[in-house]
Simulated assay, not measured.
Amino acid sequence: MNTMTKLAVSALLGMTLFSSTASADVKKGQKIYLKKLKAPCNIGGATFAQRHTQDEWEAIHEAGKFADEVKKICPKVKKFKPKYTPDVYDFVYEYASDSGNVPAC
């Protein structure tokens, strides 16, 4: 029994150390906004993020319409790559109109 417990704990520890988690980042989303979206949008990050509440941004994201909403707010954006979505979503969610947070861009 003792050997089985040690083996199970070792396997669990190994899985947690070697598994990679894909997580989005607010700061990365802010950098993407500044580099790729600020010029075509011609508005600051705070104004962009505050177009919706957190619940509204979440509903848009869950419906798979986040890129469409970005293009709706910023019609001059030519291409919004799908790989930008998780980070930019985290950025707008963090600084949405009902969050009380204000970005530095």
Rank of each mutant, 00 (worst) to 15 (best):
residue 48 F to P: 11
residue 26 V to C: 00
residue 59 A to Y: 06
residue 24 A to F: 04
residue 94 E to H: 05
residue 91 F to S: 01
residue 55 D to F: 02
residue 84 Y to L: 03
residue 61 H to F: 15
residue 36 K to D: 11
residue 40 P to L: 02
residue 76 K to T: 07
residue 101 N to Q: 15
residue 62 E to I: 00
residue 59 A to Q: 10
residue 24 A to P: 03
residue 104 A to Q: 02
residue 86 P to V: 07
residue 42 N to D: 13
residue 77 V to R: 04
residue 92 V to E: 13
residue 51 R to K: 15
residue 8 A to M: 06
residue 23 S to A: 11
residue 75 P to G: 11
residue 98 D to I: 14
residue 15 M to F: 09
residue 35 K to H: 07
residue 93 Y to F: 03
residue 100 G to P: 02
residue 41 C to H: 02
residue 80 F to E: 12
residue 16 T to C: 15
residue 4 M to F: 14
residue 53 T to E: 12
residue 44 G to A: 14
residue 30 Q to P: 01
residue 76 K to L: 08
residue 103 P to I: 08
residue 47 T to H: 07
residue 32 I to H: 08
residue 85 T to N: 08
residue 64 G to L: 04
residue 94 E to F: 05
residue 80 F to C: 02
residue 65 K to D: 09
residue 80 F to W: 13
residue 30 Q to F: 03
residue 68 D to Y: 01
residue 94 E to D: 10
residue 39 A to K: 14
residue 45 G to A: 13
residue 82 P to R: 10
residue 42 N to P: 00
residue 81 K to N: 10
residue 91 F to G: 04
residue 26 V to D: 01
residue 64 G to S: 09
residue 3 T to Q: 03
residue 12 L to Q: 02
residue 11 A to G: 15
residue 84 Y to V: 02
residue 46 A to W: 07
residue 47 T to Y: 02
residue 3 T to Y: 06
residue 68 D to F: 01
residue 20 S to T: 12
residue 89 Y to S: 12
residue 30 Q to N: 09
residue 1 M to Y: 07
residue 30 Q to V: 05
residue 11 A to F: 11
residue 28 K to N: 13
residue 89 Y to M: 06
residue 93 Y to M: 01
residue 71 K to W: 03
residue 17 L to D: 01
residue 24 A to E: 04
residue 37 L to S: 00
residue 90 D to S: 14
residue 16 T to Y: 13
residue 43 I to L: 11
residue 102 V to S: 08
residue 98 D to K: 08
residue 11 A to Q: 14
residue 35 K to D: 11
residue 68 D to S: 04
residue 63 A to S: 12
residue 38 K to I: 03
residue 47 T to G: 06
residue 91 F to M: 08
residue 64 G to I: 04
residue 2 N to L: 00
residue 26 V to G: 00
residue 34 L to N: 11
residue 30 Q to G: 12
residue 81 K to W: 03
residue 79 K to H: 10
residue 79 K to T: 12
residue 6 K to H: 13
residue 77 V to W: 09
residue 48 F to Q: 10
residue 33 Y to Q: 08
residue 48 F to L: 08
residue 60 I to H: 04
residue 58 E to Q: 09
residue 17 L to V: 10
residue 54 Q to N: 04
residue 95 Y to H: 12
residue 50 Q to M: 06
residue 88 V to E: 06
residue 83 K to R: 15
residue 90 D to N: 12
residue 40 P to V: 15
residue 76 K to Q: 10
